[in-house]
Each structure stands twice: as C-alpha cells, then as structure tokens.
Write a protein that binds this DNA or RNA. Structure first.
Lengths: 193, 193
DNA sequence: AATTGTTTGTACCGATTGGTTTAGTATAAG
DNA sequence: CTTATACTAAACCAATCGGTACAAACAATT
C-alpha cells in the first residue's frame, strides 16, 4: 500500500497562514505560498485545493489559535476590568513586537470584507462578534460585582472597544508610533471608568 | 498649431480616483482605469504617467477635496463640541449613504501603508495628522471656553477619536450594521463629556 | 492645403497570475 | 518484485498584468 504523508499538513498550513497574514489574499501569489510552505506546487493543490480554499483554512486556523485562544485566556481571569486592561496591553505589546508590521490577520481581512466569499465573511462576522462578546460579558460581570459603573451601556461600549482594538492594530502597521497606540489603549481602558 | 486637450484631465482624474477608491491600488488594473476614465490607454499614460503616479494624483485629489474640505467646513463652526459631533454624524451618514461600500479612500490606504512609496505614506501621515489636529484644536478651544472639561487630554482624546472614525469607516464596509456604527459614534461624542 | 501635436484603437512586449498535467521517483504493503 | 500511492520537479496552460509602440484619425493654426 501507499505511504503516509511525508510533510506535516499543519506545519505547511501555519506557514501559508504567515504568507497570507503578511501580504493579504490578493498580493499573496501561489509562488509566494509555495516558497513559504516549502512544499511542492502539486502537493499544495492536492492537500489544500486552490488559493481560496487555502486562505479559508489559514484564516480559520488563525481564528482558532490566535483570536479564540487569546480571548479564552483573558476570559478565564477573575477580574473583568483587568481582563479588558490586559486585552489592550496585549494588543499594544503585540503591535510593537510585530516588527514585520503584519497587523492582525483577522482585522486585516475585515478590510477585504467585500472581496471574499460568504465563508470568509462568516469567519470575520463570528470573530468580531466573539471579541465584542468578550468585552460585553466582561463589562456585565463587572457591573454585577459593582466594579464597573451601572450607567454605561455594555453593548455600545463593547463595540467601541472593538473599534479601538481594530484601529490600534491597523494604525500600528506604520502610521502611528508606539506612544500614540499606548495613548489610545489608555483611553480604551478608561471607557469603563 | 495643435489643438487643446480634448478631454478634461480633472474629470478623468476624478473617475480614476473612484476606481482606486473602490478597488484599492493592487486590485485596480489599468484595464479598470481605462474603462473607468473612458479615455484611451495611451492618453492616460501620457497625461498621468504610470499606475503609481496616477494613484498618487488621485489620493492627493481626495485628500484635498474630501478630507481637507470637510475639515475646513467643520473647523469654521463656532461651537467646537458641535464640530466634533457633526464630524461623527457626517461620517456615519457618509458610511450609510455609501452603498458601494467603498469606505474612505484615505483610511483604506492606511491599510496599505507598507506597500506604497514614501510619497503615499507622506500623504497618509499628513492627512491623519490633520484629522487628529482638528479634534485636538476643537477640544482645546472648547476647554478654553469652558465648554469641555479641563481634565481630559486633548492629544490622546484626539487620537482616540481618529481611531474611532477610522473603525467606523472600516467596519462600515460590510461587517457592522448602521445601528452599531451609530453606537460607536455616540460613544465617540461622549468622550468629551 | 500644409503643418503640428493630441487623440484613438490596436497590436504587442515580457512577466506573472492561478491552476493543471505530466513524467519520474520514493516509499510502503502485499 | 509487483503494485499502489504520494512525493518532486518541471513543463505547460490561458489569462492577465503594467507598460510601450505605432499608425491612422482628428482638430486647430498658419
């Protein structure tokens, strides 16, 4: 009978994700993806299908391993307002550490919202909803404990926090300095004060 | 002697701007630009140079006629806090009215910050600085008049407002509903309360 | 009518795009 | 050894990319 697959599909997907992440869907060519993954052209098509299918798999992987994992870690914290504070500390730290200026794969893809298929839009919708939900739940729990003022609207505050998170990562790709990003993060944290 | 130019260069540039605006630099092909402007291939190269040069001229035109003109109108208002309020009312209204979901040409280009030349980056830097300056000056004037609280930091508040404006236009390209955008705009206005 | 320079349409350039196919090779199980 | 499978390398496909070249049509001045 045949042999087992000789290259690690998940490792290849990880590398493909990095290519899409740093270049975006359109600018990433199959040649880039072949070079980035290190596997053969035919093998890549055989294992993942075409460019679009590979992009979906890469975005799903990012959503699962970065977005979802990060939120799960933060939501496990006892203190809701600290979870929110950590979120913004993390996002600024990630942006500063991101010397390649790739930004956030999910947020980058929001900008391409119109140019993708329904499946990609669904991943984006779900990801944004989850981030917003994290903020909203954190605020609600904080309010229930009396740590956060009752007169703030969890829904709109959560949307505003998501908006600021998005901008931090977008502006952090070159337009804004570290100090400016930190100023925005500080303002974001003060939204629940 | 020869004749005068038979097509209006500025009209053609306006149309080219629309193409770049709705598709972005990479996705806009020369074929799109030729079709969009309605002028001949050779004439386009003769009048504007290559694709990159045309993009710079289009972005400059947008920055002058949209970004700068809008800010000048708002800054002429007597009431600073109303100017800020109008800014966010306008940006939400523009986003809702934008059925093609083109977003803001300037903000869209921020996302491509790394992939352009220094001239484009300069236009972006200047545009963002001007928007931020509008917010900062409005806050400072309001504070001088006693209409806005003294304990808020004009610098960081202005950066936060720019961040929210950017997100409204980005999320307005499909990911967020009108109600969500209005919620963010409301929160933005409340930053100076 | 001759001249001058702009327009247009089209052909063309080399390079690259996403994607397919083919030939050959390596590795396993029977 | 045969057979079945998965790999690699490369050729190959039609289409498109940004950009150039060129001849013909055109309009205004002399």
């Amino acid at each position: 009978m045949p042999w087992e697959k000789s290259f690690d599909v998940d490792v290849a997907l990880e590398k493909a994700m990095q290519v899409f992440w740093s270049k975006g869907f359109d600018s990433a060519s199959m040649a880039n993806l072949i070079e980035g993954t290190g596997i053969n052209r035919g093998s890549l098509y055989n294992a993942f299908g075409g460019k679009q299918a590979l992009f979906v798999k890469a975005l799903l992987k990012y959503d699962r391993e970065n977005r979802a994992a990060t939120l799960a870690g933060l939501e496990a914290l006892d203190e809701p307002s600290q979870a929110i504070g950590n979120f913004f500390d993390n996002i600024v730290a990630s942006t500063i550490a991101d010397t390649e200026r790739k930004g956030c794969f999910l947020f980058n893809t929001v900008l391409e919202y119109g140019s993708h298929n329904a499946e990609v839009n669904g991943i984006i919708d779900n990801g944004l909803r989850e981030i917003e939900g994290f903020f909203r739940r954190s605020i609600e729990v904080g309010q229930a404990r009396g740590d956060i003022r009752q007169d703030i609207n969890p829904e709109s505050k959560a949307k505003t926090m998501l908006a600021l998170a998005l901008s931090i990562r977008v502006l952090g790709r070159g337009a804004y300095t570290r100090a400016a990003l930190e100023a925005i993060a500080t303002e974001a944290k003060q939204l629940i004060q």
